[in-house]
Protein backbone atom coordinates (compact mmCIF):
# COMPACT_ATOMS: atom_id res chain seq x y z
CA UNK A 1 0.00 0.00 0.00
CA UNK A 2 2.70 2.43 1.03
CA UNK A 3 6.24 2.18 -0.11
CA UNK A 4 8.86 4.65 1.11
CA UNK A 5 12.27 4.39 -0.50
CA UNK A 6 15.38 6.28 0.52
CA UNK A 7 13.34 9.32 1.61
CA UNK A 8 15.37 12.43 2.37
CA UNK A 9 13.73 15.64 3.55
CA UNK A 10 14.88 18.93 4.96
CA UNK A 11 13.34 22.01 6.47
CA UNK A 12 14.91 25.42 5.86
CA UNK A 13 18.08 23.74 4.62
CA UNK A 14 18.49 21.41 7.60
CA UNK A 15 18.33 17.74 6.67
CA UNK A 16 15.94 15.84 8.96
CA UNK A 17 15.16 12.63 7.14
CA UNK A 18 18.23 10.87 5.83
CA UNK A 19 17.03 7.88 3.86
CA UNK A 20 13.87 6.28 5.22
CA UNK A 21 12.79 2.91 3.87
CA UNK A 22 9.40 1.56 4.85
CA UNK A 23 6.92 -0.92 3.37
CA UNK A 24 3.37 -1.06 4.66
CA UNK A 25 0.75 -3.58 3.56
CA UNK A 26 -3.00 -3.46 4.06
CA UNK A 27 -4.15 -4.60 7.48
CA UNK A 28 -0.85 -3.75 9.19
CA UNK A 29 -0.15 -1.49 12.13
CA UNK A 30 3.34 0.03 12.23
CA UNK A 31 4.70 1.95 15.17
CA UNK A 32 7.40 4.55 14.61
CA UNK A 33 9.30 5.29 17.78
CA UNK A 34 12.36 7.26 18.56
CA UNK A 35 13.87 9.93 20.77
CA UNK A 36 12.94 13.59 20.48
CA UNK A 37 14.24 15.19 17.34
CA UNK A 38 14.76 11.91 15.51
CA UNK A 39 12.41 12.92 12.68
CA UNK A 40 9.20 11.05 13.65
CA UNK A 41 6.85 13.99 13.22
CA UNK A 42 8.71 15.13 10.11
CA UNK A 43 8.06 11.76 8.51
CA UNK A 44 4.35 12.07 9.34
CA UNK A 45 4.27 15.62 7.97
CA UNK A 46 6.10 14.75 4.76
CA UNK A 47 3.68 11.90 4.10
CA UNK A 48 0.71 14.23 4.63
CA UNK A 49 2.22 16.90 2.36
CA UNK A 50 3.17 19.73 4.68
CA UNK A 51 4.72 22.30 2.39
CA UNK A 52 7.52 23.63 4.58
CA UNK A 53 9.34 20.30 4.24
CA UNK A 54 11.38 19.82 1.12
CA UNK A 55 11.86 16.31 -0.16
CA UNK A 56 15.44 16.21 -1.43
CA UNK A 57 15.64 12.58 -2.51
CA UNK A 58 13.74 9.32 -2.53
CA UNK A 59 10.26 8.26 -3.48
CA UNK A 60 6.94 7.46 -1.88
CA UNK A 61 4.26 5.46 -3.64
CA UNK A 62 0.81 5.04 -2.21
CA UNK A 63 -1.54 2.55 -3.87
CA UNK A 64 0.70 2.72 -6.91
CA UNK A 65 0.64 6.52 -7.17
CA UNK A 66 3.51 8.91 -6.62
CA UNK A 67 2.38 10.42 -3.34
CA UNK A 68 4.92 13.24 -3.39
CA UNK A 69 3.38 14.63 -6.57
CA UNK A 70 0.00 15.09 -4.90
CA UNK A 71 -1.25 18.17 -3.04
CA UNK A 72 -2.17 17.66 0.63
CA UNK A 73 -5.88 17.65 -0.24
CA UNK A 74 -5.42 15.05 -2.98
CA UNK A 75 -3.45 12.83 -0.62
CA UNK A 76 -6.36 13.04 1.82
CA UNK A 77 -8.79 12.28 -1.00
CA UNK A 78 -6.70 9.26 -1.97
CA UNK A 79 -7.08 8.00 1.60
CA UNK A 80 -4.16 9.36 3.64
CA UNK A 81 -5.15 10.74 7.03
CA UNK A 82 -2.88 12.55 9.45
CA UNK A 83 -4.09 12.81 13.03
CA UNK A 84 -2.28 15.97 14.14
CA UNK A 85 -0.05 16.13 17.16
CA UNK A 86 -1.40 19.63 17.74
CA UNK A 87 -4.84 19.95 16.15
CA UNK A 88 -5.38 23.54 15.08
CA UNK A 89 -8.08 25.70 16.65
CA UNK A 90 -10.06 27.41 13.93
CA UNK A 91 -12.46 30.03 15.30
CA UNK A 92 -15.51 30.76 13.20
CA UNK A 93 -15.50 27.46 11.32
CA UNK A 94 -18.08 25.08 12.73
CA UNK A 95 -16.92 21.48 13.15
CA UNK A 96 -19.96 20.20 11.31
CA UNK A 97 -19.64 22.54 8.34
CA UNK A 98 -15.94 21.75 8.09
CA UNK A 99 -16.43 18.02 8.14
CA UNK A 100 -19.28 18.08 5.67
CA UNK A 101 -17.18 20.15 3.26
CA UNK A 102 -14.34 17.68 3.67
CA UNK A 103 -16.51 14.58 3.22
CA UNK A 104 -18.17 15.95 0.12
CA UNK A 105 -14.96 17.11 -1.49
CA UNK A 106 -13.45 13.69 -0.88
CA UNK A 107 -16.58 12.07 -2.34
CA UNK A 108 -16.49 14.35 -5.36
CA UNK A 109 -12.86 13.36 -6.01
CA UNK A 110 -13.88 9.72 -5.91
CA UNK A 111 -16.79 10.32 -8.25
CA UNK A 112 -19.41 9.79 -5.55
CA UNK A 113 -22.59 11.82 -5.01
CA UNK A 114 -22.37 14.38 -2.20
CA UNK A 115 -24.10 13.49 1.04
CA UNK A 116 -27.17 15.57 1.78
CA UNK A 117 -27.69 17.07 5.22
CA UNK A 118 -29.76 14.15 6.49
CA UNK A 119 -27.35 11.46 5.38
CA UNK A 120 -24.40 13.40 6.66
CA UNK A 121 -26.05 13.81 10.04
CA UNK A 122 -26.69 10.10 10.40
CA UNK A 123 -23.07 9.39 9.42
CA UNK A 124 -21.94 11.82 12.13
CA UNK A 125 -24.17 10.19 14.74
CA UNK A 126 -22.91 6.72 13.90
CA UNK A 127 -19.27 7.77 14.17
CA UNK A 128 -19.75 9.88 17.28
CA UNK A 129 -20.54 6.77 19.30
CA UNK A 130 -17.28 5.24 18.24
CA UNK A 131 -15.10 7.84 19.92
CA UNK A 132 -17.58 8.89 22.60
CA UNK A 133 -17.45 12.49 21.47
CA UNK A 134 -20.08 14.88 22.78
CA UNK A 135 -22.42 16.31 20.16
CA UNK A 136 -22.13 19.70 21.85
CA UNK A 137 -18.46 19.84 20.87
CA UNK A 138 -19.35 19.43 17.24
CA UNK A 139 -21.73 22.37 17.27
CA UNK A 140 -18.84 24.58 18.34
CA UNK A 141 -16.10 26.12 16.25
CA UNK A 142 -13.47 23.61 15.16
CA UNK A 143 -11.29 22.67 18.16
CA UNK A 144 -11.83 26.10 19.69
CA UNK A 145 -11.54 25.89 23.44
CA UNK A 146 -11.38 22.09 23.31
CA UNK A 147 -9.29 20.38 25.96
CA UNK A 148 -6.25 18.38 24.82
CA UNK A 149 -8.21 15.15 25.10
CA UNK A 150 -11.19 16.53 23.22
CA UNK A 151 -8.97 17.66 20.38
CA UNK A 152 -7.43 14.21 20.04
CA UNK A 153 -10.84 12.54 20.19
CA UNK A 154 -11.98 14.93 17.49
CA UNK A 155 -9.06 13.81 15.32
CA UNK A 156 -10.11 10.19 15.64
CA UNK A 157 -13.71 11.17 15.04
CA UNK A 158 -12.70 12.87 11.78
CA UNK A 159 -10.73 9.77 10.88
CA UNK A 160 -13.82 7.65 11.48
CA UNK A 161 -15.93 9.88 9.25
CA UNK A 162 -13.38 10.08 6.43
CA UNK A 163 -12.52 6.35 6.52
CA UNK A 164 -8.93 6.59 5.27
CA UNK A 165 -6.88 3.68 3.94
CA UNK A 166 -3.73 4.90 5.65
CA UNK A 167 -3.95 6.64 9.00
CA UNK A 168 -0.93 8.33 10.48
CA UNK A 169 -1.33 9.07 14.18
CA UNK A 170 1.26 11.68 15.12
CA UNK A 171 1.86 11.45 18.87
CA UNK A 172 -1.85 11.06 19.39
CA UNK A 173 -1.09 9.92 22.93
CA UNK A 174 0.70 13.09 23.99
CA UNK A 175 -1.18 14.96 26.65
CA UNK A 176 -3.84 12.30 27.11
CA UNK A 177 -4.82 10.85 30.46
CA UNK A 178 -5.31 7.11 30.62
CA UNK A 179 -9.08 7.21 30.14
CA UNK A 180 -8.87 9.41 27.07
CA UNK A 181 -6.07 7.24 25.76
CA UNK A 182 -8.29 4.16 26.03
CA UNK A 183 -11.14 5.88 24.23
CA UNK A 184 -8.88 7.05 21.43
CA UNK A 185 -7.24 3.63 21.09
CA UNK A 186 -10.62 1.91 21.13
CA UNK A 187 -11.74 4.16 18.27
CA UNK A 188 -8.62 3.39 16.26
CA UNK A 189 -9.01 -0.36 16.84
CA UNK A 190 -12.65 -0.30 15.78
CA UNK A 191 -11.65 1.32 12.52
CA UNK A 192 -9.00 -1.27 11.77
CA UNK A 193 -9.72 -3.60 8.87
CA UNK A 194 -7.85 -5.89 6.51
CA UNK A 195 -7.95 -3.14 3.89
CA UNK A 196 -6.47 -0.24 5.80
CA UNK A 197 -3.24 0.38 7.60
CA UNK A 198 -2.10 2.55 10.48
CA UNK A 199 1.16 4.26 11.34
CA UNK A 200 1.40 5.12 15.02
CA UNK A 201 4.07 7.70 15.75
CA UNK A 202 4.88 7.81 19.43
CA UNK A 203 7.60 8.49 21.91
CA UNK A 204 6.30 6.11 24.55
CA UNK A 205 5.26 2.51 24.55
CA UNK A 206 2.12 3.31 26.60
CA UNK A 207 -0.19 3.75 23.58
CA UNK A 208 1.02 0.46 22.12
CA UNK A 209 -0.55 -1.44 24.98
CA UNK A 210 -3.86 -0.43 23.47
CA UNK A 211 -3.05 -0.21 19.78
CA UNK A 212 -0.96 -3.31 19.25
CA UNK A 213 1.52 -2.91 16.39
CA UNK A 214 2.61 -5.61 13.98
CA UNK A 215 5.94 -3.86 13.48
CA UNK A 216 7.94 -1.39 15.48
CA UNK A 217 10.57 0.85 13.86
CA UNK A 218 13.04 2.99 15.69
CA UNK A 219 13.94 6.26 14.08
CA UNK A 220 17.20 7.97 14.91
CA UNK A 221 18.92 10.80 13.08
CA UNK A 222 16.39 10.59 10.30
CA UNK A 223 16.87 6.90 9.58
CA UNK A 224 15.16 3.71 10.67
CA UNK A 225 17.94 2.08 12.66
CA UNK A 226 16.07 -0.89 14.05
CA UNK A 227 12.89 -2.73 13.22
CA UNK A 228 11.18 -5.45 15.13
CA UNK A 229 7.90 -6.60 16.59
CA UNK A 230 5.97 -5.24 19.55
CA UNK A 231 8.58 -6.67 21.94
CA UNK A 232 11.00 -4.04 20.68
CA UNK A 233 8.70 -1.35 22.05
CA UNK A 234 8.77 -3.00 25.46
CA UNK A 235 12.52 -3.17 25.38
CA UNK A 236 12.68 0.54 24.55
CA UNK A 237 10.32 1.33 27.39
CA UNK A 238 12.53 -0.55 29.80
CA UNK A 239 15.95 0.55 28.58
CA UNK A 240 15.28 3.96 27.03
CA UNK A 241 16.76 5.08 23.76
CA UNK A 242 20.40 5.37 24.77
CA UNK A 243 21.35 1.80 23.90
CA UNK A 244 20.01 2.39 20.39
CA UNK A 245 22.10 5.53 20.13
CA UNK A 246 25.14 3.61 21.33
CA UNK A 247 24.48 0.81 18.94
CA UNK A 248 24.18 3.24 16.03
CA UNK A 249 27.32 5.15 16.87
CA UNK A 250 29.04 1.84 17.55
CA UNK A 251 28.38 0.59 14.08
CA UNK A 252 29.34 3.94 12.65
CA UNK A 253 32.77 3.68 14.25
Amino acid sequence: MLSVKNLHASVEGTAILNGINLEIKPGEVHAIMGPNGSGKSTLASVLAGREEYEVTAGEVTFKGKDLLELSPEDRAREGVFLAFQYPVEIPGVSSTNFLRTAVNQVREYRGQEPLDAVKFLSLMKEKMKLVEIDQKLLSRALNEGFSGGEKKKNEIFQMAVLEPTLSILDETDSGLDIDALKVVAHGVNQLKSKDNATIVVTHYQRLLDYIVPDYVHVLFNGQIVKSGTKELALELEEKGYDWIKDEVSGTAV
Binding site: R50, E73, A76, R77, L99, V103, Q105
Partner: peptide
Protein backbone atom coordinates in the same frame (compact mmCIF):
# COMPACT_ATOMS: atom_id res chain seq x y z
CA UNK B 1 -2.83 22.88 6.04
CA UNK B 2 -5.16 21.35 8.60
CA UNK B 3 -8.16 21.86 6.34
CA UNK B 4 -6.32 20.63 3.25
CA UNK B 5 -5.11 17.55 5.11
CA UNK B 6 -8.77 16.63 5.48
CA UNK B 7 -9.38 16.77 1.74
CA UNK B 8 -10.61 20.35 1.41
CA UNK B 9 -9.15 22.01 -1.69
Amino acid sequence: FYLRARGIG
